[in-house]
Amino acid sequence: MIEVTDHNGVAILSLSHGPVNALDLEILTELPNVLAQVADARAVVLTGAGRCFSAGVDLKRIIDGGAGYAQEFIPALSTAAFAWFTHPKPTVAAVNGHALAGGCVLAAAADVTLMSGGTIGLTELAAGVPFPTVPLEIMRHASAAVSSLVLTAKTISPADAAAIGLVDRAVIPEDLMTVALGQAEKLATVAAEVYALSKKQLQQPAVQRIESLRALDDPAVIEIWSAESTRDFLVEFMASLGRK
């Protein structure tokens, strides 16, 4: 589900999970394990195999899995996003296509985010589900435009995302991995302990908010994601996508 290759000491992680790299329990459980396996890499680049970076949560699995699946899924999503966000080595997201909902969170959680195509946005509210604490605080850390992105559920182009600081740079598709690897190499020239400490210092407010809010907020989030009314809404939401 996550393909790992090495490029001169830089680990390239490619999400390879179906046609749109949808996020389900299995791939989210795998991501922290893979990050631990590449702990000695000089830097890490995350990209998507195929035409998408990640189209977000696999809503069909949420519908089919019922309350029990949702109750496992939300903690796994939070754990995976937090592991990527706080990985001590330099991280670069090479966003090669649509990055929606949870895919947007993974893109924004990198130290540097490059995007070459598709659209990006936080579509959770359009699907009728709230944010867990970890993804929301990652987005608050990453972008000053988070309120507009969350509450409107709009999706935007790479150029528009760069204009509001959601991504660092829009690049043409054929240059994406070259630029991403070059950026990773550049970040990796900083002494590892200096980089890790500086990253930890920058992320400290977000991490503190996560630690103080997660135990209070996430039970309410899980309750809504697990509710029968949410399942009914998701069924209609998925049907509406098929009618477009």
Score class of each variant (00 low, 15 high):
residue 205 P to C: 00
residue 213 L to N: 14
residue 191 A to F: 10
residue 163 A to R: 10
residue 146 V to E: 13
residue 144 A to W: 07
residue 204 Q to H: 07
residue 177 M to F: 09
residue 150 V to Y: 12
residue 189 T to P: 07
residue 180 A to N: 09
residue 179 V to N: 04
residue 168 D to T: 08
residue 209 R to H: 04
residue 201 Q to E: 09
residue 151 L to D: 14
residue 160 D to G: 02
residue 196 A to L: 04
residue 143 S to Q: 10
residue 191 A to L: 14
residue 180 A to D: 06
residue 200 K to C: 04
residue 176 L to Q: 10
residue 186 K to Q: 06
residue 168 D to F: 10
residue 210 I to G: 02
residue 150 V to I: 15
residue 154 K to D: 15
residue 195 Y to H: 14
residue 207 V to G: 00
residue 152 T to Y: 10
residue 155 T to S: 14
residue 190 V to L: 10
residue 179 V to P: 03
residue 190 V to H: 03
residue 202 L to H: 08
residue 172 I to G: 12
residue 174 E to P: 06
residue 167 V to W: 05
residue 208 Q to R: 05
residue 172 I to E: 14
residue 163 A to F: 08
residue 145 A to S: 15
residue 199 K to P: 03
residue 198 S to I: 01
residue 190 V to P: 01
residue 163 A to Y: 05
residue 197 L to P: 04
residue 172 I to F: 08
residue 179 V to W: 08
residue 205 P to M: 01
residue 177 M to G: 11
residue 160 D to Y: 03
residue 161 A to S: 03
residue 196 A to M: 03
residue 170 A to N: 09
residue 180 A to I: 11
residue 150 V to P: 06
residue 169 R to D: 04
residue 147 S to Y: 12
residue 205 P to D: 01
residue 153 A to M: 06
residue 201 Q to C: 09
residue 192 A to M: 02
residue 186 K to E: 02
residue 212 S to M: 08
residue 159 A to F: 06
residue 185 E to V: 00
residue 206 A to L: 01
residue 198 S to F: 03
residue 175 D to M: 13
residue 149 L to K: 03
residue 169 R to Y: 04
residue 210 I to Y: 03
residue 177 M to P: 12
residue 205 P to R: 00
residue 152 T to W: 06
residue 210 I to D: 05
residue 182 G to D: 02
residue 148 S to F: 10
residue 175 D to E: 14
residue 191 A to D: 15
residue 165 G to P: 05
residue 171 V to M: 03
residue 201 Q to Y: 01
residue 201 Q to V: 15
residue 174 E to H: 07
residue 192 A to D: 13
residue 162 A to V: 07
residue 166 L to P: 09
residue 145 A to H: 13
residue 190 V to M: 11
residue 197 L to F: 12
residue 156 I to W: 02
residue 180 A to H: 12
residue 208 Q to S: 10
residue 203 Q to F: 07
residue 204 Q to K: 12
residue 211 E to R: 12
residue 161 A to Y: 02
residue 214 R to G: 03
residue 185 E to Y: 00
residue 156 I to C: 04
residue 173 P to F: 08
residue 198 S to T: 11
residue 206 A to N: 01
residue 158 P to D: 11
residue 151 L to V: 10
residue 197 L to A: 15
residue 203 Q to I: 14
residue 184 A to H: 02
residue 208 Q to C: 01
residue 212 S to A: 15
residue 207 V to E: 01
residue 146 V to R: 09
residue 185 E to I: 01
residue 178 T to H: 15
residue 197 L to V: 07
residue 152 T to Q: 09
residue 176 L to A: 11
residue 159 A to E: 15
residue 209 R to M: 06
residue 169 R to V: 05
residue 153 A to N: 05
residue 212 S to R: 09
residue 166 L to T: 06
residue 189 T to L: 11
residue 177 M to R: 09
residue 196 A to R: 03
residue 168 D to R: 13
residue 181 L to G: 03
residue 160 D to H: 04
residue 147 S to E: 14
residue 196 A to H: 05
residue 190 V to Q: 12
residue 148 S to M: 14
residue 176 L to I: 10
residue 146 V to N: 06
residue 150 V to W: 08
residue 147 S to G: 09
residue 177 M to I: 14
residue 171 V to I: 12
residue 168 D to E: 11
residue 152 T to P: 06
residue 170 A to I: 09
residue 196 A to F: 03
residue 175 D to K: 13
residue 154 K to G: 12
residue 207 V to C: 02
residue 186 K to W: 00
residue 148 S to I: 13
